[in-house]
Design a protein around this nucleic acid. Sequence first.
DNA 1: TCAAGATATTGGAGTACACCAATTTTTGGT
DNA 2: ACCAAAAATTGGTGTACTCCAATATCTTGA
Lengths: 252, 252
Amino acid sequence: MEYTNFWLDSWAMTTERPPAKSDQLRRHLVDLLVGELAPHARLPTERSLAEEFSVSRLTVRRVLDQLEREGRVYRVQGSGTFVSEPRIHKSVELTSFSEDMRSRGLRPGSLEVSCERIPAGADIGYALQVSPSSEVLHIRRVRTADDEPMCLEHSYLPAELVPGDLEPELNGSLYEALSARYGLTLHRAEQTIKATVLDPDEARALHAPPFSPAFLVQRIGFDARGRAVERADSLYRGDRYSYQLTIYRDPQ
Amino acid sequence: MEYTNFWLDSWAMTTERPPAKSDQLRRHLVDLLVGELAPHARLPTERSLAEEFSVSRLTVRRVLDQLEREGRVYRVQGSGTFVSEPRIHKSVELTSFSEDMRSRGLRPGSLEVSCERIPAGADIGYALQVSPSSEVLHIRRVRTADDEPMCLEHSYLPAELVPGDLEPELNGSLYEALSARYGLTLHRAEQTIKATVLDPDEARALHAPPFSPAFLVQRIGFDARGRAVERADSLYRGDRYSYQLTIYRDPQ
DNA sequence: TCAAGATATTGGAGTACACCAATTTTTGGT
DNA sequence: ACCAAAAATTGGTGTACTCCAATATCTTGA
């Protein structure tokens, strides 16, 4: 059993914005792609879609640009727009561990949750752009899927951004809690992924044999203004987790 | 010493197209970003850029959309467009091991190159959508940086796409050779990355101790029409290689 | 019947304008 | 001087149109 994707716990991913006019068109096209159309089948032309959906052709093009970037369609000038071969279409994006697990019919959860305020120290201080003597909130969790340990995670947040006691909320989504209570909304994450092996303590926490292969993911999360708001170190069992991604030759 | 990025040897990345009108604007903005502007400095407004470069505002927006996708700028409605914090800005894209090494002042190379035609078998056959009894070209290489082994790679290509003898060209870029001789141009790659440890043979090839942590990358490369044209299995030393990437909350 | 040229179709890029939402600046009142 | 409201600015989305390049289809002539 393997899992997939670069993820980050959802940060108010469901922030409501009024549906753009193009959303209905996108939905229609995605339905076509997901449903009955074979690979290399030709989609309706830009001009006919614009007429059918009462939108301008530029609006159609913007939706198709997006689907092309996602690798779901390819376009040939003078010919048309075609359905790509079916593959795993998840490009790199911010998705949720919890959502990911749920979409696979698994129940996400946490074990051994602990929460403390500690001085940042040199490394964490650099990552979060705070002084080494500043307080940060340290959260340790074992993330689970159907109660089986998947990931050992240490998160560090600048204390000044998260006053009060968070611990009661940490069985759910950390980021949902941060967004709801503090208005912290993540915009971007920088991640480094390393291959490693589990030391005996880590192996015990993850119910794996010592020195088993694992991924170490170090992440810094930034809000829309570029402030560093989270540093996390996460260890994933190598036998239960892998990354799958689609890489494109950039259209520009 | 660690290396970075998802890569693929360059496939004729320099295909020439006439410069679009927006290219001059992009170059100007990139110069600003690379040069004198500090993180969080405000860029000129969309309307002033449109006037200065005699383009429509939509054209400006398309260039800025692109720079935003690359993580080089962030935009705040009502405020302006700002320079992102300097980070490694390489989003996931098709770049080249050779280019990557060279950009770090290292010399890419290959050792122990071998080349043979073998039947595909079940797994490779599935990956390349050919019958298990079909011939594929199997290329084994140890990729090096400054003559130090970095990666043990096995590539498999459908034999019918690559008639003749490729071996003389395999010290350089495989993909450049494929593009120049056969017109094979890669458009997309699907990759799976796993955490593993090196067995004794693999460890010997990579000059590492047995059971050291490593990445195993399995890749299928597709051309623009969605044909599978390459399957590769690559083992990277975990102490000399890591992945760094920037993930965005998707604007749509 | 086949091949070459002409025409039509379709994606690619751009213009000029409109309106809306979010943020910043200015103005007026206390 | 400070605060609230109004106005201005700036990014976000969309319309309707134009012209160009690449491909597909049709027409004509040998």
